[in-house]
């Protein structure tokens, strides 16, 4: 279990760092789109690592104790939660950005805005 614990601690460290960066980016960036960058990407990436740490732990117990099947449920369902989180986060970020642009929110300090030009035509 020693190796598995070390792997889990490393993964949890990376995951917590990215979660904190994402949440701080929510306060540091100037407008909605850049906040969406920080929030969606960093928290999704951090969540991947934290849930992977949980999966590693439960898979280790599952492999060690063999016939004790209860940790298998933990492992499989955590993987399913991870997949659901990935798909819904990516699509939700797209929907939020589209809605914000249609509601008239301008990207701050933008160099080029092709979508605005298309809507003006």
């Amino acid at each position: 279990m020693g190796v598995l614990n070390t792997i889990s601690y490393v993964f949890i460290g990376i995951g917590l760092f990215f979660n904190l960066v994402g949440v701080i980016g929510l306060h540091r960036f100037p407008d909605m789109y850049t906040r969406l960058h920080a929030a969606t990407k960093c928290t999704t990436f951090g969540s991947i690592f934290i849930i992977t740490a949980v999966i590693v732990q439960s898979a280790g117990i599952w492999a060690l104790e063999g016939a004790y099947p209860s940790q298998s449920v933990m492992c499989i369902h955590a993987v399913l939660a991870l997949v659901a989180l990935l798909v819904t986060n990516a699509t939700g970020a797209h929907a939020m950005a589209r809605a914000a642009h249609r509601s008239g929110e301008k990207p701050a300090k933008a160099v080029v805005d092709d979508l605005q030009e298309k809507e003006n035509d």
Partner: peptide, 16 residues
């Protein structure tokens, strides 16, 4: 909603 949301909703409905 856009085409991407519609496709993902269709695929996700089976899992739900």
């Amino acid at each position: 909603m856009s085409k991407i949301v519609r496709t993902v909703a269709n695929q996700l409905m089976l899992f739900v």
